[in-house]
Design a protein around this nucleic acid. Structure first.
Length: 490
RNA sequence: CGGGAUGUGGCUCAGUCUGGUAGAGCACAGCGUUCGGGACGCUGGGGCCGGAGGUUCAAAUCCUCUCAUCCCGACCA
């Protein structure tokens, strides 16, 4: 097969980039740091979006939409929040262009300067809380359970397709509650939804945990995260859910009368997941032949490639292909019959492998004679000849098996790449040589955490589901109650 | 914002040192042979060499300025 991708072993970053471009997911645009998401990539996003949207609605959330622009003054209301985002905001200062009389072309009209600058949202807490203020008077107005699908802009210094772009697509949930307990429960519920989505839908195992003080979201009391492990041994934060306490309610003066007739500030959460998950999908499962997509997110689940010589061989093949396609569609499977005569079978095989189509069916004269088809699965690259009889239900079951296999493979990798370390030297050994997650004791202090950061790795999270265990911090030797996850991250 | 590099058909690059008719591979188009793992042959189309000045009989090549992009650091879903 002609080499179109750099191999993972050769250069992982290059492999990733080649893959995104060659498989037609996305490409760089004329605007620095902003990508064009191409139809195949967007189709994956639409699938993710549909599933998440379903999960959100099943837990009582509704969608709404808030403005792209946020008045600058809103940002300064919550101190930590400004601190966190100020350095990466795009700012609108003018509202008109005019012809340049001297040099030709267009210039910004200096007379069209805005009274107050507008910030292109890097996240919407501020504009949303400014709005919620008008919606909440009584505990009867609560809870507010809203999600928004939107684009946001964070002016990153260095960008990478899907993993870090200046503009990205995401959903952001923003909820308001009458009690602390209810808001905490909501934040926890949402991180669990993300975990389930990642494992069941994307086939990517996660560690659910909470962030340290220094890694928390700007303005949050508690940040929960799902940490995923990529094939190169680096961690990726896959989604976050924040318990915001009363910080934003206080900053935006959102008060309500509670059941006892007393005035109180509203309790809040926010949670988000982004197009970065497409990057995670690639880095978790794909190989040197191209994408490996779990059937659940694959825009094309099954492709049928006819093999024929001369136009007279095609009709009987097309007849069988069309019949199989119809049966599969009836079972809810997304099938493409690629009967283009402009590309050869070999070319198509390579192309669909690159695009990660889970199952490929090839039908040629031989199969017509024998009543068979050739089936190839993308995850294992296995090929076998099977009877046409009962093919649809066979494939339906095969897709479920592929989904499961992809997850199992990623889980095995994650487990064998997770190392318990009990000393600084062991930690360094994992970070420098082995890669993956290091489970180590940490004393909970900023000093020890900073020391760990000097290695370029960070404390990814304090796992929620691991059992507590007494131990000694690998940095200071002081007592610790729990192991934390340390890894280099994207 | 510090350090390094690069701008030449759609893409990857050669040509720049040593100035002298703009090249290759891929991609694209036509024709023919092919078609069970990215076919091959022949033919063809496509480039104010990032931009602006300058030196010269002559500039992709030398000089000055400028713009842009990429890589490495600090920031980050």
């Amino acid at each position: 097969m002609a080499k179109v991708l750099t191999s993972r072993e050769e250069n992982y970053a290059q492999w990733y980039n080649d893959l995104v471009l060659k498989s037609g997911l996305a490409e760089n645009s004329a605007v620095r740091g902003c990508m064009v998401i191409k139809p195949y990539g967007y189709a994956i996003w639409e699938k993710m979006k549909a599933e998440l949207d379903r999960m959100f609605k099943a837990t009582g959330h509704e969608n709404a939409y808030f403005p792209l622009f946020i008045p600058k003054s809103f940002f300064s209301r919550e101190a930590d929040h400004v601190e966190g985002f100020a350095k990466e905001c795009a700012v609108v200062t003018h509202y008109r262009l005019k012809n340049d009389e001297e040099n030709g072309g267009l210039i910004v009209d200096p007379n069209a300067k805005l009274e107050e600058e507008l910030i292109v949202r890097p996240t919407s807490e501020t504009i949303i809380w400014n709005t919620y203020k008008n919606w909440v008077q009584s505990y009867r107005d609560l809870p507010i359970l809203i999600n928004q699908w939107a684009n946001v802009v964070r002016w990153e210094m260095r960008t990478r397709l899907f993993l870090r772009t200046a503009e990205f697509l995401w959903q952001e949930g923003h909820t308001a509650h009458a009690t602390r307990e209810e808001a905490e429960k909501e934040a926890m519920q949402m991180i669990r939804i993300y975990a389930e989505f990642s494992e069941k839908f994307l086939g990517i195992p996660v560690v659910v945990g909470s962030k340290t003080e220094s890694e928390k979201f700007a303005g949050a009391v508690e940040t929960y995260t799902i940490e995923q492990l990529m094939q190169d041994g680096k961690a990726l934060q896959g989604g976050t859910s924040h318990f915001l306490g009363q910080n934003f309610a206080k900053a935006f003066d959102v008060q309500f009368t509670n059941r006892e007739g007393k005035l109180d500030h509203v309790w809040a959460t926010s949670w988000g997941m982004t197009t970065r998950m497409i990057g995670a999908l690639i880095m978790a499962h794909s190989d040197n032949n191209g994408l490996v997509l779990p059937p659940s997110v694959a825009p094309i689940q099954v492709v049928i490639v006819p093999i024929y010589r001369g136009d007279d061989q095609l009709p009987p093949i097309a007849e069988v292909a069309t019949k199989i396609k119809k049966e599969l569609v009836e079972l809810g499977v997304e099938v493409k019959f690629d009967d283009r005569d402009t590309q050869k079978p070999g070319w198509k095989f390579a192309e669909y492998e690159l695009k990660g189509v889970p199952v490929r069916i090839a039908i040629g004269p031989r199969d017509i004679e024998n009543g068979t088809v050739e089936l190839a699965r993308r995850d294992t690259l296995e090929k076998k000849v099977v009877p046409q009889e009962g093919i649809a239900s066979y494939i339906k079951a095969l897709l479920a098996e592929i989904q499961e296999n992809i997850y199992r493979k990623a889980l095995t990798f994650r487990n064998t790449s997770t190392h318990r370390v009990d000393s600084w030297d062991e930690l360094i050994d994992v970070l420098d040589n082995k890669g993956g997650f290091a489970l180590a004791h940490w004393d909970g202090t900023r000093e020890s955490e900073d020391r760990i950061k000097e290695t370029k790795a960070t404390i990814r999270c304090l796992p929620l589901d691991d059992e507590m265990e007494e131990g000694r911090c690998v940095v200071s030797g002081k007592p610790s109650k729990q192991r934390v996850v340390i890894a280099k991250a994207y």
